[in-house]
Write a protein that binds this DNA or RNA. Structure first.
Length: 277
DNA sequence: CATTACCTGCAA
DNA sequence: TTGCAGGTAATG
């Protein structure tokens, strides 16, 4: 489940390897609804012959910028991966886009569940309009005072607010649970009910949980691998996600982690460290 | 707010 | 064989 840390790791890996490379060929778009605003022909026409100038991340989107303000934007949703391979290797099953580069490497978008999306934007304005309509601020850049403003504008529960990409961009189910455990906040607390001290804890936890997951190159819980096909290590450091029945690791706690459904999502928490009120 | 659709792999 | 996993858009 690629969330902010996994997408950041992938973007960094791609940046190292494809910036400065020219697109030679584009292919394999076998599932047209994965590219809502472009056909294979349009993708090829816009990118072949152009050179990658940047690879960035915004929320869970990877944004590959080519010369002439052409942007290839990819969202991996749940099972998607972006992997670089040498062009002589066969295309594996569930590959839905291939971008061949001038140095003998190929960027493959592989997604068994076909939930992933591929967008093409010509010009920075159309890219920014697309992103700004969907995404709130970056969690690693949000100032403490701005978090107040964001929280006060929300009436839902913490868990669903954290999952809302227009609140903060890039947090998904796994990191929402980890952030709430780290903050010692119950997922069903109303977002606007937090005391200043609790907001401090939430602000710190958002930064710490996401930053350390990036340092560990992401969580390889199910499908995720980075741009070179390597797994991250953050799955070895999870405190609650997927850990029902295991003891809470907080000093002297040991309460068994429970799973329940909050905001229609599997949600793991320590009921002692994260009291309902 | 909640529910459903989109998809496939995999566990029960 | 059924149902669950979950990101997001669309729909009650």
């Amino acid at each position: 489940m690629p969330e902010l840390p996994e997408v950041e790791t992938t973007a960094r890996g791609l940046r190292e390897r494809i910036v400065g490379r020219r697109v030679v060929e584009v292919g394999s778009l076998d599932w047209p609804r994965m590219a809502p605003n472009a056909t294979l022909a349009a993708l090829a026409e816009a990118t072949v012959g152009r050179t990658f100038e940047s690879v960035t991340r915004r929320g869970k989107f990877v944004i590959a910028g080519l010369s002439g303000e052409v942007f290839l934007v990819l969202h991996r949703k749940m099972s998607g991966n972006l992997v670089l391979r040498t062009a002589d290797l066969p295309i594996v099953p569930h590959t839905h886009l291939t971008v061949e580069l001038d140095d003998g490497w190929r960027l493959d978008f592989i997604d068994p569940r076909k939930f992933g999306r591929i967008y093409l934007f010509l010009g920075r304005e159309s890219l920014d309009a697309f992103l700004d309509a969907r995404l709130g601020p970056e969690p690693l850049e949000i100032a403490r005072r701005d978090l107040d403003r964001l929280l006060d504008a929300r009436r839902g529960r913490l868990k669903s607010v954290l999952l809302d990409q227009t609140f903060l961009a890039g947090i998904g189910n796994l990191y929402a649970d980890e952030i709430l455990w780290e903050s010692r906040l119950h997922p069903e607390r109303p977002a606007s009910s937090l005391t200043p001290r609790e907001r401090d804890r939430l602000h710190t936890a958002i930064r710490d949980v996401l930053a350390s997951a990036i340092e560990r190159r992401g969580t390889s819980f199910a499908d995720y691998v980075d741009a070179t096909g390597e797994q991250g290590s953050n799955q070895d450091y999870l405190q609650v996600y997927g850990r029902a029945g295991l003891p809470c690791s907080r000093d002297g706690c040991g309460t068994l982690i429970v799973r329940r459904v909050v905001a229609q999502r599997g949600t793991w928490l320590c009921t002692r460290c994260q009291p309902p009120a």
